[in-house]
Computed example of a mutant assay.
Amino acid sequence: MERSIAAINRKIKKKQAQVCTVAELKERVKTDGISAVAQTVDVVTTGTFEPMESSSAVLNLGHTDPPMRIRQCWLDGVLAYAGLGAVDLYIGAAQPAEDPDSERGGGHVIADLVAGKGVQLRALGQSTDCYPRASFDNVISRDTINQFYLFNPRGLYQNFIVGVNGGDRPLYTYLGPLYPHLGNAVYCNPGAIAPLFNDPELKLIGIGSRIFLGGGIGYITGEGTQHFPLQKRLANGTPIGPGATLAMVGDAKTMNPKWVRGCYLRHYGPSLMLGVGLAFPVLNETTVERCAISDGEVVAPVIDFAIPRRVRPTFGLVSYAQLKSGRITLEGKPVRTAPLSSIYFANQIALELKQWVAEGQFTLTEPVAPIPLDRPFLSQDGWDPAMNL
């Protein structure tokens, strides 16, 4: 049994496609088996809602009168990069406000713009013959600017780590607070329902694939930064730690503020909670077999953040079934666990995407090229003069 994306899309357009979320598929496989599910299901939808600090936005303001070439700019007190065109701006979700007492950052600015709120603009320019204006202050919104794109250089991890703290003082990290003496363990992946756990070899998506991004339509633009498909893997193909990542882009003017939210991690900094969903075509039984994995069949490494090194000690691997139970055991001690991602919202995104497909509003796209699977993971260890670079 083999299907094509074109054949599935014909069914979607006629509103005849059989669609289920990945959580629903896993339950159906338990009762009906892989072969029967593969015969009856056309599309499987997945989702995740988690902090993605490598998110950003590109804005085009439109020209002032007289024209201005912006070279420094702040949006609600958050520095935006202006080294592009005259009135093009780039703002990162993790950029903090310049007020040291503020708990806002680029993620909050992006979320406010998505929600249609006004944002204070302060800009300084480089006066030239064609751009004479030197400064400009205004309030902007998504409706008063031209392009407003959400861009994620690294927006979706295939897997991640579990953070713990074996030291004697609290640590404030990108996973949130980690309490001393193994006081808690934090993970940031919804487990077996996570999009890329269900397509471990990235055979169902690629460059150009249409996705759910922030409640609107987005596209995969390529491999994400820190893409590491060569991560060690279990027999089922899933990575034992951070593996593949994706870069994504979408029109932020069409997004839903429910799925784009600014957040702040105490004593660490701002980020952006973002909802992403992937729809997989059921091409054959292998697709269903991959999507049938359970939380007991996917694992993550437990990393001690008390050691301030790039490579930190690990307490070994734990399954997502153990993590979701609320307790894991480390060195004979029970340790509380909590997800930084929202498992509830991950399922809600999969359900919303399922509805889009079932109603013929979301068709699948043939990738124009695959995501590379041979990328090594490089790090910086200082310059060696002997290398003659």
Results as ranks from 00 to 15, higher is better:
2 E>Q: 11
4 S>K: 01
6 A>S: 07
8 I>Y: 04
9 N>L: 09
20 C>W: 02
26 K>M: 08
36 A>I: 15
36 A>R: 15
37 V>S: 14
50 E>T: 15
53 E>N: 03
55 S>W: 10
60 N>C: 10
70 I>L: 13
70 I>H: 14
71 R>D: 08
72 Q>I: 08
74 W>K: 15
87 V>A: 13
88 D>S: 15
88 D>W: 12
96 P>D: 07
107 G>D: 02
124 L>Y: 15
127 S>G: 12
155 G>W: 11
161 I>S: 15
163 G>C: 03
167 G>C: 11
170 P>C: 09
173 T>S: 13
178 L>N: 01
194 A>Q: 11
200 P>T: 00
201 E>K: 03
203 K>H: 06
219 Y>R: 12
227 H>N: 13
235 A>D: 10
236 N>F: 05
237 G>L: 07
248 M>N: 02
262 G>R: 00
264 Y>D: 03
266 R>H: 11
270 P>Y: 06
276 V>M: 07
290 R>K: 02
297 E>Y: 02
299 V>N: 01
301 P>C: 10
303 I>S: 04
309 R>N: 08
312 R>G: 10
317 L>D: 03
322 Q>Y: 05
325 S>K: 04
326 G>Q: 07
335 V>D: 00
338 A>I: 03
358 A>Y: 07
361 Q>Y: 10
363 T>Y: 03
363 T>I: 12
378 L>A: 08
380 Q>N: 12
387 M>H: 06
